[in-house]
Design a protein around this nucleic acid. Structure first.
Lengths: 136, 136
DNA sequence: TCAATGAAGTTGTATATGCAACTATTATTC
DNA sequence: GAATAATAGTTGCATATACAACTTCATTGA
């Protein structure tokens, strides 16, 4: 092999940019970004979830979560009193469901196009990266 | 398998956040972010490279490249007359070399900790994602 | 030559993130 | 129960990105 010394971080960041664009396109019809749709879909099945929990689950810095939540609240998708756990409004709930439908189809399609091996490759990488390299 | 339906985009984005943090830490001593170090290391071997080329190589939107470059220019790492190709200043060149040294060690270490299989998994995923799913 | 095209860059606007420092809330210990 | 420690959330500040619209140049035809 030749280019077998590419940058792990650089490659992952590039792929993240590419798939983000791909997924974002699928959600523009709903007027949400993928990041927002993702949060909606994380909150939906765990009503009352704490920002700190989402921060760990998604590995997003707590201040970033705080701001994402504030934005979603301004959009009317999350109720007030954020410090006592997160709850979707009716509108937020409906949106989360529509996003999930979109996501399910898209993610399935992407998995098929990538193929089992590539997806398994991601799973393996993911496992190693999240368990072997956590901040000590 | 159970959790075999995770979100491809979500996972990639999470991994990108994690490795970004890891690589950023390694560059803080030099006062650069990984994103900046990466650009320096891309420009170094291709003096006079165009923003449009970097945009394609890194899959970063051209306006984002433009702003990254402006910032690096303000930092004194890139010469003026950006519209005629990018050139590192002496300071930028020296910094690029130091960054490359840091990167080489870190990336090697990360590769070893991840293991060949995980890295191959990333390579495969990368190949599929960049060839099979490009914006039509 | 000069108008039409197209590529490259820039700028307005917005989101997504991170780090540090600060505040607020809760839990622990004397 | 009050002081202290720990956890959660927020805010100031900065970078990284994206999309759309605009500007600059360079190319190409008639």
């Amino acid at each position: 092999m030749e280019s077998q010394n590419y940058c792990i971080a650089g490659r992952l960041r590039m792929l993240a940019r590419v798939v983000t664009g791909l997924y974002n396109d699928a959600f523009t019809a709903e007027g949400v970004t993928f990041a927002q749709a993702s949060l909606l879909m994380y909150i939906f099945p765990q009503p009352g979830v704490r920002q700190a929990t989402l921060s760990k689950q998604l590995q997003i810095e707590k201040s970033a979560v705080s701001r994402d939540i504030q934005l979603m609240q301004r959009n009317g998708w999350i109720t007030d009193n954020v410090r006592n756990g997160l709850f979707l409004t009716d509108e937020g709930t409906a949106l989360a469901k529509r996003c999930h439908k979109i996501w399910k189809g898209l993610n399935q399609r992407v998995r098929e196009e990538l193929g089992t091996d590539a997806v398994d490759g991601l799973s393996l990488l993911s496992d190693k990266l999240l368990t072997k390299l956590p901040k000590e």
